[in-house]
Each structure stands twice: as C-alpha cells, then as structure tokens.
Amino acid sequence: MYRIRFHGRGGQGIKTASRILGSALFAEGYEVQDAPRYGAERRGAPIFAYVRADRAPVYERGIIDHPDLVVVTDESLVQVPAAAVMTGLCDRSVLVIASAAEPELWQQRLGVTCRVLTLPPGPGEGAALMGAASVGAAAKLIGQISAANLEGAIRAELEGLPSDVIERNVGRALESFDSFESHAGCVSEGEALTRASATPPAWVELEVEPTSISAPAIRGEATSEQVQTGLWRTMRPVIDDSLCNHCSWICSTLCPDAAIDVGSDREPIIDYEHCKGCLLCVAVCPSHAIVVEPERAVDEHRSDP
C-alpha cells in the first residue's frame, strides 16, 4: 500500500492536491482512499491531507503514521511542531519540500537520513500553483501514474474554474512531473499491517475527579496567547520606523488579532508570535510605513524574534 501525506496551510489547495493524486491513482486501477484533516483553524493554519492506494481494497482509516511519501507545500511548516510534518518518517520514506533551498541543506537541518527532494517555486510564483506542482512531483515519484491520467485528474478536479486557471495548473503539474524524471518511482509501497510491529496500548483506569478540573472549563485569563498563530503567516508586515508618523495607532486599533500594541513612546510594536499576516495594517497605514516581507524558513531572518 502507498501511504502519502500532504502538509500545507488552509487555503493552499492541499485538499485539492490530495484529491487529484487520489483520482490519478484510481484511474491507474488502484483502490484509493483520500481525505483532508481539518481542525478549528482557518486560512493559513497548518492542515494536512492523505492518500492511500493499494491493489487490494483499503481498510485502514484516518491518520497515516508511517508515510511512504510526505509532501510539504509550505517550507515554513517543517519546523512547526503542531504541523507534525516529520511524524513517522523512516529511512525508506521520501520527503518533498516546496523550497528554493538545496535538499542537502534540509537534510542537514532536519538531521534525517531519508531521501529529501525540493520543489523550487517558479520565478514570481506564489503559493497558488504549489498544490499543482506538488501533485505533479508526487505522481512522478510514485512512478505509477501516466502524464495523461495526471492531467485528466486535474481537469476533473478543477472543473468549473476559469479555463486559464485550469491550464496554468495543468502546465505547472506536468512541468513538475517531468522535472522529477531522475527520481521516478523512488517511493516504495509500505508494509502491510502486522501484529508484531504494533505497540500494545497502555490503557489507564480513569478515576472520578473534582468538577473543578473534570468539566470543560478554563480558569486562566487569555490563555489563547500560548497559541502561536504567527506560524500561519507566509508574509510579514514590518514597520519602517523612519516612515511611521506615530499617528493615533490606526494599525493597532484595526488589527483584528490584537497583535499590535503601542508603547508609551507611541511606537507601534508588532507581536510576531501572534500576527497572522493578514496585512490589513499595511493597507490602512496612512503614511505607508508598513512594508511586506516574505517569510522564509531556511534563511537567518526567520530566527529573529
């Protein structure tokens, strides 16, 4: 059985990518199961989707713990623990990351021994086509999908969208498909379920506990601040101090996420742990003092607070 996991952000087309790959495998005669996994989080938040394919009916369900192939369409997710990109990777797994950096650099940073491949974005290409590029790559790496079936699956899945959008996606997917020719078929099918490989469950006896802790109530204040929604961001707003005219904190008032405070010196400060990157502040700043910079995972800039 092939077990493939896609990781991306809400709104980046991960669900569509997994469905295209599922449809293409189905067209090749496989029994297929594909599904997205949502949380409560919204656009920009880490999500994943998975595809299983086998010649026999697929009876496994839910999360894939031991993937043969992991495709990450947003490199900034790799180091986000909550995204669980690295879960279950082993030596025979293949990891594909949408990134302009070299695969060796990733291998080194992540300390993994499995095969790592990168999928560089095209010049000026945003996140919009990364889904198509990643599904093209996955199809080639699995080595069981023809270009014709890949294209058919994309056209079926995107039916109803404007034709130029469909053509751009087909073009990008096929380009990516071809570019991985030297790695064709490098993904191998994982083992079937065996009893010997399972760890027995460590079941516990629950005791009756006081309602002060055993009811779904939260007694802390603003505990949401422990959630780093800054990880949703793909672009970051940066205040150019030389241009900021210390207005009446329009950026702070209009920030939906209370992520800009104004200090006593009237300097607005962006809280990057929580800024979701909506860039509303960029749009409303009267003196155009807030600029936009891309978030990149591998360069030094990311490690700044």
Binding site: A40, A215, P216, A217, I218, R219, G220, E221
Partner: peptide, 8 residues
Amino acid sequence: PISQAVAV
C-alpha cells in the same frame, strides 16, 4: 474569570 462549556 472562567470560560465554561468550551469546545474541545
């Protein structure tokens, strides 16, 4: 403060 009956 208490947030009661929250989602899980």
